[in-house]
């Protein structure tokens, strides 16, 4: 089976690097979630509980 049929086959080194990149992306995404949560609190401030029903 040649490379075309198998698709792209990653070497062990490439797999290792992909894993570290994936972890970095996960950390960045988690930090963004936290950031948007924090900014929501900051922007709403004390009014967070003051919503008309």
């Amino acid at each position: 089976m040649d490379n075309n049929e198998q698709g792209i086959v990653l070497t062990d080194e490439q797999k290792k690097k992909r894993r570290s990149r994936s972890i970095a992306i996960a950390i960045v995404l988690a930090a963004l979630v936290l950031l948007f949560y924090l900014v929501t609190i900051v922007k709403l401030g004390p009014d967070i509980m003051n919503r008309p029903l």
Binding site: I8, K17, R18, S20, R21, A24
Partner: peptide, 12 residues
């Protein structure tokens, strides 16, 4: 030929 996927986090 695809030769990507070689970059580590520090390269980025």
């Amino acid at each position: 030929v695809w030769n990507g996927g070689e970059g580590s986090v520090s390269d980025y």
